[in-house]
């Protein structure tokens, strides 16, 4: 056997516990919301001989959808808060490209990871700028999905909270349109989810920095020769 591969790595604590917790709650919420949302849009055909008074499965599916919507929304608000008080990797500055360096890095990431025409390795440790911008756009979709969802939900609730969002209905021209867009964006979540998981695997595969496990333990590993950015 050849000489074992020995590389010196340095541990960097990238994702703080609240970020990780947010991430997994969010992942669970999206999974549940997309699944229940799809069922609400297209209920399974169940023919039953028993009376309606003995069943409530569709009501339960809707209840789950609505409950997880609340968790999703407040979890999302928490993440925004953490963008101001969290560590450098969690900071809101990662998500909005306001410096030339960030734009330069975006081009670099495109060339390196998407078009694969660059060989220059990437130095950033947390989100690269392209990922940051993507997550920023994703946050906007989170917001849109929350507003349209609560806007639709307001009619079924006596609570004041969903009523804060009813202004979206006249803005979009009625419940039909709101529902339509709320449904379409469910697919956005599904597709972004697939691409997200793929890219995590991709980075782990290419860079060998422990991208996948970092969201569990919080640690990433960079070669000691690299400087921490």
């Amino acid at each position: 056997m050849a000489e074992p591969n020995v590389v010196e790595y340095r541990q960097i604590y990238v994702w703080q516990f609240p970020v990780r917790l947010y991430h997994w709650i969010n992942a669970l919420c999206i999974l549940v919301l997309a699944a229940t949302g799809y069922i609400i849009g297209k209920p399974i055909a169940i023919q039953s001989a028993s009376e309606a008074s003995f069943q409530y499965w569709f009501g339960t599916v809707r209840f789950i959808h609505f409950s997880f919507a609340f968790i999703f929304f407040f979890n999302f608000l928490f993440r925004i808060y953490w963008g101001f008080v969290g560590n450098n990797f969690a900071h809101w500055k990662n998500f909005i490209p306001y410096t030339a360096a960030q734009w330069k890095e975006m081009v670099h990431v495109l060339a390196l990871d998407i078009l694969m025409i660059s060989k220059k390795p990437l130095k950033s440790i947390g989100h690269n700028s392209l990922a940051g911008v993507t997550y920023f756009l994703l946050f906007l979709v989170f917001l849109f999905q929350s507003i349209t969802g609560f806007g639709l939900y307001a009619q079924m609730s006596g609570s004041w909270f969903p009523k804060l969002f009813v202004w979206i209905v006249p803005l979009m021209g009625g419940d039909i349109a709101v529902r339509q867009w709320h449904h379409l964006l469910m697919w956005f979540f599904i597709i972004v989810g697939i691409v997200h998981v793929y890219l995590v695997f991709y980075h782990d595969y290419i860079e060998a920095r422990g991208t996948t496990s970092s969201m569990v333990g919080g640690w990433k590993f960079i070669e000691k020769s690299e400087k921490e950015k």
Binding site: N5, V6, V7, E8, Q11, A208
Partner: peptide, 23 residues
């Protein structure tokens, strides 16, 4: 490179910070 990485030139393995073995 990752799979058959050799520890560059520096074989002076004196980890100042926590060290993790590659692969």
């Amino acid at each position: 490179e990752n799979a058959s990485h050799n520890a560059h030139d520096d074989n002076d393995t004196k980890p100042a910070d926590k060290q993790e073995g590659g692969e």
